[in-house]
Design a protein around this nucleic acid. Structure first.
Length: 517
RNA sequence: GGCCCGUUCGUCUAGAUGGCCCAGGACGCUAGGUUUUCAUCCUAGAAAUCAGGGGUUCGAAUCCCCUACGGGCUACCA
């Protein structure tokens, strides 16, 4: 009753993201969730999280929580789902178990499905046998008449088997000579002949439905209007269309959109869990520890990516707005998104571009936010009770030099600790016989400068260089070398001002000793 | 093997109804400038005979066909 009212009230968009809890969600899955979310929000629709846990053998503890938490970190919110409830629940297929058999029975009664008693071993043997003859076995209109099922067995025997509790599956009775037409929102019109399709199992002998059955029943019951999923589902889409037909639900069948795949950055093929840590970028939104093996897979969050950046990166892998704008907030993505602008071909993940996106977002964050993040990092480096004002100043100085928060340390550690190594390249190029002597004089000059401020310090040092007709680049770079440890970093005198005269002089002496020995 | 999908610079891609495209942008790369360093920033540049071949057309990256290559699926997994 309630559902009828909802349906009649509007033909509002309702989409679902339907992962199975077999492990952490990889970025391909995250992108699917994102596109569903963008589409739903664009049309003022409803975004649903449904957990497809019909394969009890592949259930992984913690995976469902992981999916919810990682999507939440990314800002992908659900209107209905396992974790938030809603009028179309339950949203976990194992909790809907009871209803599937009922639907399956109507299919059997209408001659759209049948009981099959062939054991997994029998079928396996058959497959082997076919293979030996260089043919491939398919349980279909041609072979089903030779197999052990309610189509070939006498009615009494079927009833007896069922009554005796013999293991069985229910298979879809795929018609022999029909054409299935799919109008995919991304790929256009696709036609498939039913004779190339097999009699897929709808209901397993363990009492659970397969994905195919559960997904159609649930999408129908949950009044899903658009199914946006990965291209790997395209081959089974004809079966799904046939199921809608068999149930008599064609009129409310959702529209399909099959997304292009996310490919390995090197070579070809679908991006897989293994690729990430092999190629130096995460494939998971957040870090995941395998509950069985204890194996840890890195995540974007732990690698220092901002959630906004990950969203932006993923949004552009397979979609673009057709304008030159590349940096998009979630709100802007929602406004700009359309299924028509999703590309058909697979996209490779580009690590360099991903870094660039993160850098753009890092620059957008205010210094206060970055300082707070950096202070956590500093504590891990053993810098306790750092002066907040100083950290803020440092952020300002080096913000433009990094793409990730965790790169801030490399770019600024000389503000906190004296260098204990000195860049060999710089030594080789700049360090001369008389360098140590000049640096000693500069230490005196710094010491004798009345204030610790940048300007007078700078002027006095430059004065010394000009007075002695020295090479500016050589002396300055050597001074930088002993203060910073390398030929990098922001304005030298700003650094000296910030670490103080005393510390600077110490570093000059330490540097001279280390380098000259 | 069978079925299905795809193919524009190294990568992500732009390219409504064929002419404005000897193909545009971004990342990366190269060079120069700024910065007495490095990074940033600025400027310039290299980079796709639009997978190949046939058509259709006055005209095709854009339409049609074929081929090649790549990918997905082919479980009582999703």
């Amino acid at each position: 009753m309630q559902k009828e009212i909802i349906r009649n009230m509007s033909n509002k968009v309702r989409v679902r993201f339907a992962p199975s809890p077999t492990g952490p969600l990889h970025i391909g899955g995250v992108r699917t969730a994102l596109y569903n979310y963008l589409f739903a929000k664009k049309h003022g629709g409803t975004m649903i999280l449904r957990i497809e846990d019909t394969d009890q053998g592949r259930f992984v503890p913690g995976a469902e929580e992981y999916i919810i938490d990682s999507l939440s970190w990314l800002g992908i919110k659900f209107d209905e789902g396992v974790h938030v409830g809603g009028p179309f629940g339950p949203y976990r297929q194992s909790d809907r178990k009871a209803m599937y058999l009922e639907y399956c029975d109507t299919l059997v009664n209408n001659n759209w499905a049948y009981f099959a008693f062939d054991s997994a071993e029998d079928l396996e043997a058959l497959r082997k046998q076919f293979e030996a003859e260089k043919k491939s076995f398919q349980y279909d209109a041609q072979t089903r008449v030779t197999l052990k099922n309610s189509l070939t067995l006498p009615k009494e025997e079927v009833e007896k088997l069922l009554a005796d509790g013999a293991p069985y599956v229910i298979r879809f009775k795929m018609p022999a000579h029909e054409e299935v037409h799919i109008n995919d929102l991304i790929r256009g019109h696709v036609v498939v002949k039913t004779e190339t399709l097999d009699d897929k199992v709808l209901f397993k002998s363990d009492g659970m439905p397969t994905y195919h059955l559960a997904n159609i029943v649930d999408d129908h019951l949950m009044e899903i209007t658009h199914v946006i999923r990965g291209e790997e589902w395209l081959p089974s889409a004809p079966l799904h269309v046939m199921l809608y037909k068999a149930f008599g639900w064609e009129d409310t069948m959702p529209q399909f959109a099959h997304l292009p795949l996310l490919l390995k950055p090197d070579g070809n093929g679908k991006l897989s869990k293994r690729d990430g840590d092999r190629l130096g970028f995460p494939v998971f939104p957040t870090q995941w520890t395998d509950p069985k093996t204890g194996e840890v897979s890195s995540g974007y969050r732990e690698s220092g990516y901002f959630p906004e950046a990950v969203i932006n990166i993923l949004a552009f892998l397979g979609w673009n707005p057709g304008t030159e704008q590349e940096i998009f907030t979630m709100e802007e993505l929602i406004q700009a998104f359309s299924i028509e602008r999703i590309s058909k071909s697979g996209a490779k993940f580009d690590l360099e571009k991903a870094k660039w996106f993160n850098q753009q977002y890092l620059r957008q964050h205010d210094n206060e936010f970055l300082a707070l993040s950096f202070e956590i990092l500093l504590e891990q480096k053993g810098i306790i009770n750092s002066d907040h004002e100083m950290v803020l100043k440092i952020i300002e100085l080096i913000k433009e030099r990094v793409s990730f928060v965790n790169e801030l340390w490399e770019q600024s550690k000389f503000f906190f600790v004296a260098p204990d190594t000195y860049d060999e390249q710089v030594i080789k190029k700049r360090w001369k016989e008389d360098t140590a002597q000049h640096l000693k004089s500069l230490a005196d000059i710094i010491n004798n400068t009345i204030t610790h401020q940048r300007e007078p310090l700078h002027d006095n040092v430059v004065q010394y260089i000009t007075d002695n007709s020295l090479n500016m680049g050589q002396i300055m770079n050597c001074l930088r070398l002993v203060i910073v440890g390398a030929g990098m970093g922001p304005d030298l005198f700003t650094i000296i001002e910030m670490i103080g005269k005393e510390e600077s002089i110490k570093r000059i002496n330490k540097g001279i000793n280390s380098i000259n020995n």
